[in-house]
């Protein structure tokens, strides 16, 4: 991986961290609200179904996770396991794509359910 890409990855991780800081707070507040008010699964789905604002927020949340986590994992693999070079880059790229697909699939599921 060339130097410029390494630097841009670092930048992407910082920016995604800023997005996550906001998303996680909103996510936690939503969870606490849903649990404390005793919402049933059906009631929750009733609020998420067809809700573009809700879906947009979680599409962004998943994207930030899919960018942030693989870059961090790459550093962990390098520093903790000594796994460096092209193979871990491919592994974390696949991991990121899977995170995005799984996350967006879940968002889609509760959007159209």
């Amino acid at each position: 991986m060339n130097i410029r890409t390494q630097v841009l990855l670092w930048g992407a991780q910082r920016i995604s961290a800023m997005v996550l800081a906001l998303c996680v707070v909103v996510h936690l507040v939503t969870i606490i609200y849903a649990v404390r008010n005793g919402l049933s699964a059906a009631e929750i789905l009733g609020r998420t179904r067809g809700n573009v604002a809700w879906a947009s927020f979680y599409v962004l949340f998943v994207a930030a996770v899919a960018v942030h986590a693989p870059i961090g994992l790459r550093a962990i693999l390098s520093e903790t396991l000594g796994w460096r070079g092209r193979s871990p880059d491919i592994a974390v790229l696949v991991f990121g794509v899977l995170l995005a697909l799984w996350g967006w699939r879940a968002v889609y599921a509760v959007f159209v359910a």
Binding site: I3, V7, W10
Partner: peptide, 12 residues
């Protein structure tokens, strides 16, 4: 700047 960038440089 190129010498100090990236995985072996300041970003580590």
């Amino acid at each position: 700047l190129a010498a100090v960038a990236g995985d072996a440089g300041c970003h580590a």
